Amino acid sequence: MSLSSSFARRLVPFTPPSFIPPSALATAPASYLPLCNLPTPIHRLPSPSSISSLVPSLLVKRDDATGGTELGGNKLRKLEFLLAAAISEGADTVVTIGGIQSNHCRATACAARAAGLDAHLILRCLDPSSDVASAPSLGNLLFSRSAGAVLHTVSKEEYGRHGSTKLVDAVCETLRGEGLSPYAIPVGGSNALGTWGYVRAAAEFRAQAESDPELASVKHVVFATGSGGTAAGLAIGISLAWARAGEEPPKLYAVGVCDTPDYFYKFQGAILAEMGFFESADEAEAHLRRVLVIMNGRGRGYAVSTDAECEFISAYAKRSGLFLDSVYTGKVLYKFCSEVEEGRVVVGEGEDVMFWHTGGAIGGYAEPRLAGGFEKERRLEL
């Protein structure tokens, strides 16, 4: 018996959260593949020093701990549903796409291998002829290689010219010609199916809030948005879960690390409409604009960091022991703290901020500036 068929027997029936409306129940997935360590914990840590006078501490939802080192992060919640679909459809291979240090590609490669599936990863590079070859053991790329994924490289220009969907479809077509049965996974795992992972996560957070009185003070929740699925799932899930309980939901802030807020509202609205939560994408977008503030935190561009951002990440690691990465979580918290400092986000007395940590620390290995200063290093002499 193959690994994939034995894993297929481990697919678990999915019970949608109680707050899901009938229109969305019709599109809910039938099953998922249990990969995550759930529920992920919520830790209280010192807030970054830049806002400590306004926000003394920070609650952190540790979705960096969804799996082991090779699996951890927000992508795994989506992959539980996406890989279940791949197995159910009889696929033997998955194909997905991202940047050279893509957390999603790394998690897909490792999770697919655990499920008995092969993985083909399309990686966007500055220089496809040398980037991958010159970094055989760097960050996410190390784990993708170690899991035996087949790597396909494209330039930034090729990616922009053709788009991620066309590139994934092209590799899938080639694999079909070789007698394989590929399953296409979009960039970031962000489609209607993958987004159910974060609708489910919202239900998890609601259950934690109901069982822990300390979480009643959470009035602000901040998280990253890069491909859109995480933010879409949390926005609809949290707004519905709190509404069902007759309570005002916390204010939600998604910090974009690429694209623009208008793009994210439109893209995420289309996802929620496809999931059946709204009759149209326009109606879904209007809801998102009411419940979710999307900030532009891309700075100099996707996966491009300023010295100030890197210094912030390094300083916060020294203050709290929490490591953020320079592509997602570091930029997100840096941007949010800037908004608080400058008075554009107001945190009232007694209100807690929860930062939803979506993982990505492995990608930080590629950014030497995160090491900070070396003033505490000493030469040991006996």
Rank of each mutant, 00 (worst) to 15 (best):
A114P: 00
P16S: 14
S190I: 11
L25W: 00
G237L: 12
L121C: 01
L234F: 13
E89Q: 15
F19G: 05
T153N: 05
A308R: 09
G177H: 09
A119L: 06
H120E: 11
G197T: 10
C125V: 04
A284K: 01
H43V: 09
H120N: 12
T174A: 13
A119G: 08
L25E: 07
H43L: 15
F277C: 09
A24N: 08
G139T: 02
C172M: 10
E283D: 12
Q268R: 02
P22D: 07
R106D: 06
G360Q: 05
A170M: 09
V95P: 10
A270W: 02
E274W: 10
G194W: 03
L45V: 14
A109H: 05
F312R: 03
F278L: 12
A114W: 02
L35S: 08
G197R: 04
F264T: 08
P128K: 02
F19D: 03
S88Q: 15
G229P: 11
F323H: 09
V187M: 11
E342S: 15
L252H: 02
M275A: 14
A30M: 05
K266N: 11
L370E: 00
V150A: 12
G116A: 06
E173R: 15
D118N: 14
S50D: 08
P22T: 06
E248F: 03
E377Y: 15
P41Q: 13
L141P: 09
V187Q: 12
A270G: 15
V154L: 14
A65W: 05
S239H: 07
P128V: 10
E342D: 13
C36K: 04
C110W: 03
E158T: 13
F205S: 04
L59S: 11
L11Y: 09
R176K: 15
R298C: 14
A201M: 12
F7Q: 15
